[in-house]
Simulated scan of single mutants.
Amino acid sequence: MKNPFEKEDNSSLIIGMLIGSLAAGAATYLFMTKRGATIRGEVSKQLNTLLKKIKGGESATENVEDHSKDYLHKKHKAPKTDREDLLKHHILAE
């Protein structure tokens, strides 16, 4: 038989109700007010531009490719030893 004087733990129920009421309040604000509609429009625009960047990806890939080509090109022209570098800048005489 269940003890009638034992308290039940309802903390998860209370937390769930608080989260649900906050979500309902946010949804009501976003869908029922003019300010919420402008916020939804701004968020939608930002998400669309982000998705285009993610899906397109070519511009970011091309940028990385160009950067790597520039880096390798600069590396290729660099002197191979410190001595060659010093001779190039006329610091060390042969």
Results as ranks from 00 to 15, higher is better:
H73P: 00
T38P: 00
P4Y: 02
E8K: 10
I54T: 06
S21T: 06
H90I: 02
T49P: 00
M17W: 00
L22T: 04
S44L: 11
A37C: 00
Y29E: 04
G56E: 10
S12H: 14
S11N: 13
Y71I: 08
D9L: 07
I91V: 15
L50T: 14
K2V: 05
E94M: 03
H73M: 06
L18R: 07
N10Q: 09
N3R: 07
Q46V: 15
V43L: 15
A26P: 00
L22Y: 06
E58V: 04
K75V: 09
Q46F: 14
H76E: 14
T49F: 04
A78T: 14
L18H: 02
P79Q: 10
D70W: 02
E8D: 07
V64Y: 03
S11W: 12
L87P: 03
G41Q: 07
I15H: 12
S59A: 11
D9S: 05
S12K: 15
H89Y: 13
D70E: 12
E8N: 04
A93R: 13
S12A: 15
G20D: 08
E58P: 00
Y71M: 08
G56R: 02
L92E: 14
T38H: 09
K69F: 02
E6S: 04
S12I: 14
A78N: 10
L51N: 06
A37S: 09
D66Q: 09
M17D: 02
K80R: 15
L92I: 04
L72I: 05
